[in-house]
């Protein structure tokens, strides 16, 4: 029996998860699959402890601690069966850097449709700044590995675990990514990439805590491969945009048709790209890159 990996996942992505895999068998491990495909049973989280509260009673304590990372909060849970951990938590005075190993815990209220995800702590340990920084780096690497797997998958959506593995994607990642694809569809990769970048920026000396904010917009589903069409259209314009006047509309239409993009989709894409400030119309019937 192999030991479960302690995943490094950012709080925001962990909390956004809605897929819990539980086999019918008693004592079989449960897995939480995150939007980018971390298949988590055990997690290792490091962050700043900002609050600890006993939501239970003296006799039946239920400690809930909030751990802040660069993307959001982990909710750390220690109940009757984690009394040792509860004792440590209750003795801590926030803020402190805390490392937590624990198991996935998910709860859906009887009348609710939303799943609440927390960490059932197995162990907690007070650490120092360097360990927090190091954890951010490891979590960033782990997320990047999954984003890279999605990039490969977007080029060939039919790839299975073996196919992804042949592109150098580790098996433990490939499996989770495919499960995530089935449940969530394609995640908003740009959003997770931005989250990754701002988490890493907290590690640089020029990071300015007072003026930075760690809040992120909620990830949005991408509709119908819109981003792919947009980037293909940009590519076409780039290829055709030669003279000072820019690319001729009719040529763009032809090339788009070759790529399977309908005139309607093309017009919409060009409009969006103009709105975004990536293209403009120097004269009627011509399109140029900004």
């Amino acid at each position: 029996m192999e030991r479960e990996i302690a995943w490094r996942v950012f709080a925001r992505e962990y909390g956004d998860s809605t897929l819990l895999l539980r086999s019918g068998e008693e004592r079989a491990p449960a897995y939480l699959v995150t939007p980018t495909g971390a298949k988590v049973n055990r997690i290792y989280a490091v962050g700043t402890l900002v609050s600890v509260e006993n939501k239970g009673t003296e006799e039946e304590p239920m400690w809930i601690a909030r751990l802040n990372d660069p993307t959001g909060f982990f909710f750390i849970f220690a109940g009757q069966h984690q009394r040792d951990v509860g004792a440590v938590l209750s003795s801590l005075q926030p803020p402190v850097f805390l490392a937590v190993t624990g198991k996935v815990r998910a709860y859906t209220p009887p009348d609710g449709d939303r799943m609440y995800v927390s960490v059932r702590a197995e162990g907690v340990h007070v650490v120092e700044g360097p360990q927090y920084d190091d954890w951010i780096l490891d979590s960033a690497r782990s997320l990047k590995e999954r984003l890279d797997a999605w990039k490969i998958l977007s080029e060939d959506p039919e790839l299975g675990v073996e196919g992804l593995a042949s592109h150098g994607v580790g098996r433990h990642i490939a499996e989770g990514v495919l499960l995530a694809q089935e449940h969530y569809g394609r995640p908003n990769l740009g959003w997770y990439r931005d989250m990754l970048v701002s988490a890493l920026q907290t590690l640089l000396p020029e990071y300015d805590g007072l003026h930075a904010s760690h809040m992120f917009p909620a990830p949005q589903e991408e509709g119908g491969g819109g981003e792919e069409v947009l980037s293909r259209v940009l590519e076409i314009v780039r290829e055709l945009d030669e003279g000072p006047q820019g690319a001729i509309w009719e040529d763009i239409l032809d090339r788009a048709a070759e790529s399977g993009i309908t005139p309607e989709d093309l017009e919409e894409a060009v409009e969006i790209l103009i709105d975004r400030g990536e293209l403009y119309e120097p004269v009627l019937g011509r399109i140029k890159l900004v």
């Binding site: 700043t48 900002v50 802040n68 926030p94 803020p95 927090y132 805590g209 007072l210 930075a212 904010s213």
Partner: peptide
């Protein structure tokens, strides 16, 4: 300052944590 500069907690979280504490 400790929250923001040492613990790198976002400003709005730091303010709320202190008020709550």
């Amino acid at each position: 300052r400790t929250y923001v500069e040492h613990y790198k907690v976002p400003l709005y979280v730091a303010k709320r944590s202190i008020v709550k504490k």
